[in-house]
Amino acid sequence: MMVSVELFSRCQPIAGLSPRTQRCIAEKATLIEYAQGNNLYVQGDPPSALYLLQSGHVKLHRQSRDRCQILALLAPGDCLGAESLPTGAMSPYTATALTPVSAVTLPPDILQSLLDEHPDFQEAFLRLITERLKQFVSLVHDLAFRDVTSRLAMVLVARAEVEGTVHDEGILVDRLLSQQEYGEMVGTVREVVYRSFKRFEDRGLVRLTRDSILIRDLEALRAIALLEAR
């Protein structure tokens, strides 16, 4: 499907490029849709395309045998892919659609020519990688110094801030992940996530329904999220 420049407006690093570079990207990009559960790219594959997420959610994760660590949850406006293009190395993680997804896509050969011909695109690409780097450094900090309850609170706070909608009793977010996947996000097993959610519910901080999570006390969750383990 053809792409118009307007689709870049939600992706800040690309929206900040010169009109000429944006037009050049739009001419070469395509809009692709992915069904829920499909992979956009897989850990260990050659460098992939650059994806500008238009709708839906994607998880970045690493898999070792039966274990999985979710590294990031991406929402519309986020960019992903092509992390390994500059080195030619294999992709360091897998990107999987958590919901139906549509993304503006630039394949590696087009990306390479954009990097060669448009210095402002080089800068934008560098910013995208730097942003992801900062995100991973922060994840390492959380995994090393915070306990599971704090990390789960942090995930809920981040989701509420980015995509929560105001509700009579607090802030509502889609459930999006199973309890197993929340475990993969905070580095623990499903049973521990279940117990942590139960504690949050008992204290009146959240209420879980089948499809959503109602965050009733964002400030209390924020305080838990900032606690560091002794």
């Binding site: 660590q69 590294l71 360091p92 993680y93 450094v137």
Partner: peptide, 11 residues
């Protein structure tokens, strides 16, 4: 860093 995160989170 992706690998360090995996190691800390699931190993």
């Amino acid at each position: 860093l992706a690998r360090v995160s995996e190691v800390l989170g699931s190993w």
